[in-house]
Amino acid sequence: MATQLKVQLGPLKLQNPVLVASGTFGYGEEYNRLYDVSRLGGIVTKSISLKPRSGNPVPRIYETPSGMINAIGLQNVGLEAFIQKKMPFLRSLKGPRIIVNIVGDRISEYVELAARLEDVKGIDGLELNLSCPNCERGGIEFGVNPKLTAEVIRKVRRRTRRAIIAKLSPNVTDVTLIARAAAEAGADALSLINTLLALAVDASTWRPRIATVTGGLSGPAVKPVALRMVWQVRRALPKTPIIGLGGIMTARDAVEFLLCGANAVQLGTVNYVNPKAPLEVIAGLKSYLAERKLKSPSALVGKLQVPERLRGLPQVVTG
């Protein structure tokens, strides 16, 4: 049998394991001007909130060595405009799975978003952006607290038959606690990681480089952190579908994520750097597998070779 790239991610069948990440690919149309985006495994939309959001003051982005910090403030068109203006294009794409990333200030907003998207055609799954401050709990991120994470997912689960992907924040001491809570609450898959909380300073002016002071770090600089977290979650949850992301630039980077336990990958910041990277990763993955006579990406999943004596390590203890 020839090498093929199809993967199964919980209930989702993907033509290949390469998706594009929320916030880095707009609503799909933008990059379709450069290449045929129907070849992607999946498209995750920019986070959608119930109401349009105007976002943060500028500067919103700052480049760091091999990375970038962003504090966009979830500027998006809002649910109604998304359904009316952005879904028609996404729905017209036959190849990729369409994942709508949703975000809210309170649990009821996630639930309402899920409920209102339930009748919208052409959506394959919801990705829950849990890296958002919860205004009912003093601004603590949903995704840093296992109880809140579980509660959001449980309540959204009751309102949707669609696949739920919980997108985990890396800004936690033990990501496996959150991952387990999400899986047990009914998430069909986990995606990790979102951006790492970061700060850049201008030593000449004594000012932060980003208007909101802190922002989220992404790009190749975060890849080692992301790989570590994917590996930890894979060890803790051997059966849960995982989408790995954080700093992927090339097919070999994607292979590293699969080896650490990801079943699929998302490409984020690289879209800005090399828009055709998703196609290159798809092609590169195929030849990587073919050269090794491997039939499918699943042959790589979790195959990281770890010394025998380190295999049964206790999980990281939380502080």
Binding site: T24, Y31, P52, S54, V58, N271
Partner: peptide, 22 residues
């Protein structure tokens, strides 16, 4: 960032819309 209209990084404030709208 992207220059493709996706990252929302290069925005400027313009008064073509009422302040506060997206």
């Amino acid at each position: 960032g992207c220059a493709m209209g996706c990252c929302m990084g290069c925005v400027v404030e313009v008064n073509t819309e009422p302040v506060g709208s997206h």
